[in-house]
Design a protein around this nucleic acid. Structure first.
Lengths: 199, 199
DNA sequence: AAAATGACATAATTTGTAAAATGTCATTGC
DNA sequence: GCAATGACATTTTACAAATTATGTCATTTT
């Protein structure tokens, strides 16, 4: 158990593992520090608080997800395709997290519910991606909403159920295929709505 | 403090008052019984458990709300109008409860989250109202969805953010006018979608 | 000088126990 | 016979003490 990584990275990866395995409740700075081969005081050199450490772990996931979304948003494809893939990718990322790493999902869920800075910023950046794609669609004539801001709010509100952690938890036990079908319908309506200037 | 009401009714109204004033945490069968002028054992003659008593209180509100919704759904107006009013009334009922009786809202929220029978049944009945109005619209030609079931799921999914307690809590501090505007947009899109057979 | 520590004050959690609440039922009173 | 009770077992909650964790900082180590 030799620490080759620099301390900050090592703490973060141990914290990540610890959170995934034991969950928020049993996540302690002391335990993480011990597993990282240092005293807990040293952890505070790199992370200002326990909450900040947990948020840093969540943020790694958020940023990785954002990167994948940005790749979609910045791609060369038509805005319609990009918007559909953006929504599907975001919904899938959150839904997969719920099933594959429930503890990390719970930490994310809390950060969102308590409006932590990482979640507010993530939300702003993801929203910016939606705006970018919709603006792209408007520029190319694929979308023709009467009111651009209203159109953006519409897309976000309509898809809320399939994207927001609190909403996803409610449907954890609904068969994925059924959820997929409903989301697919919603996306079709959203795209059609943006294209035909109903808003 | 003479009990004119029959016991069951009296227990229920005392319980209702107690929940509204003190909240779920401090709601005890013993306290309710005392305030109703009887021993707690007697409460169990009418309600099988503490949870059942709380649920009964919530159910009174749910049923009253359902009645108002049913009045809309069964009215003589065009299906489009009725669907719009149905959504607005349901959203407003839940949102008003959140602000005017937070304790009762919290109890409702829990019943929904834990899938209590009262909430599942309420959900089924409210859904039936939506189905009725949409079927009405299909019968009169106002709505022409390709797939009726898909259309119903779409309306419920799209409006989720403005109706579900868990979603409403997230936006408790957003100005009502802003929420109203967004909901209004969503309803317009939903009506247009149903009318034009996109689904 | 940067990294890490030990020692410390404060805050949160756990543990054990007393008190109170939930839920049951045989009996009482109307 | 129906409503209500008192007595009781079981489950929760409330409280206090002890333990553990969080967060700070002067000092040591590399």
């Amino acid at each position: 158990m030799v620490a080759r990584e620099p301390s900050e990275t090592r703490i973060l990866s141990v914290a990540s593992e610890h959170l995934r395995l034991h969950g928020l409740r049993r996540f302690t700075v002391v335990a993480v520090a011990e597993e990282a081969g240092m005293t807990h005081a040293n952890v505070y050199r790199y992370f200002p608080s326990r909450v900040a450490l947990v948020d840093a772990v969540v943020d790694v996931w958020l940023k990785a997800t954002e990167r994948r979304l940005a790749d979609i948003a910045d791609g060369p494809d038509p805005a319609e395709d990009k918007l559909e893939r953006l929504i599907l990718a975001l919904a899938k990322a959150n839904r997969d997290l719920l099933h594959e790493d429930p503890h990390l999902f719970a930490a994310l869920s809390q950060a969102v519910a308590k409006r932590h800075a990482i979640s507010r910023r993530n939300r702003a950046r993801v929203r910016a991606l939606f705006e970018r794609v919709i603006d792209d669609g408007i520029a190319t004539g694929a979308f023709e909403p009467r009111d651009r801001d209203r159109a953006i709010a519409f897309v976000i509100d309509a898809t809320h159920r399939f994207i927001h952690p609190a909403a996803l938890e409610l449907e954890a036990d609904v068969p994925q295929e059924s959820v997929d079908a409903r989301l697919s319908t919603l996306i079709r309506v959203a795209l059609r709505t943006l294209a035909t200037g109903v808003i």
